[in-house]
Design a protein around this nucleic acid. Structure first.
Length: 244
DNA sequence: CCGGTTGTTCAGCG
DNA sequence: GCGCTGAACAACCG
């Protein structure tokens, strides 16, 4: 379900409840639901993979993690983590992390780190990358403080498209290549969004979950790389290794 | 039916 | 107290 683009789709789907009052809130989440009852939703925002339901003086943070789902004006069989009832309609979130944070979102989030936000700042990302020259690029891309919203699918696709080997070291990328990668991160995020909306995301995958390199027709490698040992698909022939 | 996973947090250890 | 590692959690797909 959830890389940044999927959360943009979520945000758009739930926006029908913007400026609507929550008549009743409940669920399995360990939060004080009374704080939400009879409060009006000012806005829905997102920061990377975080969905933010904004009220006066506080907000709800929802993270779908790996298996989270949601329903608008529908229920699933399972009891929701968070259920919001409105005068007309309802919103349900399942198998997700739910937190109530008594701050304004602007106090908490650096919007310039979100690859899909209007405030995304490539220069700040470059600065952060310069601080971690020894990190593998496959790990750096998944760092949510640098590339908020970027997930494992996007990691694989962006590296394949820019022909950068996942085991390359951040500090060894030539400037031109680093710039190309940063552009592709944003480009691919919006391609992902467009394709996901059209229901054609998977057929655009070039490397992720693939067995054969679409460029050279030789078998792709699959290894569990990086700190999180995340599945990584790459072509030893056409993705260049920078560094050792 | 089993294996795999679009993610994160936290306990435990050195 | 730090950083690192692996476990734990979860539901659905093929």
């Amino acid at each position: 379900m959830p890389e940044g683009p999927s959360i943009i789709i979520l945000k758009e789907a739930v926006s029908i409840f913007k400026n609507k009052k929550v008549l009743h809130a409940n669920g399995n989440a360990k939060i004080d639901f009374k704080k939400i009852n009879n409060k009006t939703i000012n806005d829905f925002k997102s920061w990377g993979k975080h969905t933010l339901i904004c009220f006066d003086g506080f907000f709800i943070r929802i993270h779908l993690l790996m298996f989270g789902t949601y329903r608008v004006n529908e229920k699933k069989d399972a009891k929701p983590k968070l259920h919001l009832a409105f005068k007309k309609g309802e919103l349900n979130f399942y198998t997700c992390s739910v937190q109530l944070i008594e701050k304004n979102v602007d106090e908490v989030y650096d919007w310039s780190a979100d690859i899909m936000n209007d405030k995304w700042d490539e220069k700040k990302a470059v600065k952060k990358l310069k601080e971690i020259p020894d990190t593998l690029i496959c790990d750096a891309l998944l760092d949510q403080d640098i590339f908020s919203g970027l997930g494992n699918i996007m990691k694989n696709e962006v590296l394949f498209r820019t022909r950068i080997h996942p085991k390359s070291e951040v500090g060894k990328l030539p400037l031109k290549k680093r710039r190309e990668l940063l552009k592709e991160v944003v480009q691919y995020a919006f391609d992902f969004l467009k394709w996901k909306k059209a229901g054609v995301l998977k057929k655009h995958w070039l490397a992720y979950s693939k067995k054969i390199c679409p460029r050279c027709n030789i078998p792709l490698q699959k290894e569990y790389l990086g700190k999180g040992k995340r599945s990584t698909f790459f072509c030893d022939n056409c993705q260049e290794l920078y560094g050792s």
